[in-house]
Amino acid sequence: MSISTLPISQATHEATPGKWTVYGRAFAGLFVRDLYVLRREMFPFIIRVCMNPLLFLFVFTYIMPHMSGGAAMNPTAQMAASGGGNFSTVLLPGLMAVAIMFSGIAAVALPLSQEFGVTREIDDRVMCPLPVGAIALEKIVFSSLQSMIAAAVVFPLAYYVPSTPVAAHVSSWPFLLAVLVLASLVAGALGLTIGTAVNPKQIGLIFGVVVMPITFLGCVYYPWAALKGMPFIKYGVLVNPIVYMSEGLRAALTPGAHMPEPLILGMLCFFLALLTWLGMRGFLRRVVG
């Protein structure tokens, strides 16, 4: 076994780069690796991202309106009657929020619990020359990228599938962008918190115990303003971060009533800080003895 020395790499590694350069390169390396793996698994990724919004739009905004005598069963007609705009318009931001949140779970929580429970691959990732917290941060950031792709995929679907056209209009691009980025980061942080807090053996349960409730009580299928007749529910759902994702996108994309914009941004920031803190703490506890 002979060793052929490589003069180039030898030279760069003799000169010790600064701490932040080392961290930056390691972070970039992790990101590149994740991108590479995602690109290779593009097909399952696209299926995962498309299926939920596609089926939802198809059933509720295409099949239902076409049903014979369906006015009573037709949410579109009812929504329009109650002044909330048509149902497709309500669904667009809601489904984007769900896509964002699902991606956070699928990109962080599920693989992480797998790594803690079975494969222990994470043990090698933790040996990168990067503080452990930053390794968790990379997971959040990469997951947010997937969330944004997932949200973007909803858009063309919501445009072509429904039988009644969606009334979408971007009033402020910076606001839309801020909501999109914050919501995606919140989803990643939520995934990190769930992935580190839940016992790997019980990860299957979180769909029933966490994901379903926060989706259905997340103002996804109805605007928050429409809850005005039920104050208990209206204020109860405010602890749910999904509410601010869907209301934020609703405010940015569609006309009609929605929560005040500063409140939305403020609460998204609050949840981002809270969940990142919880997730990082859980991650540290899991990987450092």
Partner: peptide, 15 residues
């Protein structure tokens, strides 16, 4: 990828 994590350039990592 291990090489990339440790700050190698792509060419160095490949080699």
């Amino acid at each position: 990828f291990h090489c990339l994590f440790f700050g190698f350039s792509r060419a160095e990592a490949k080699a």
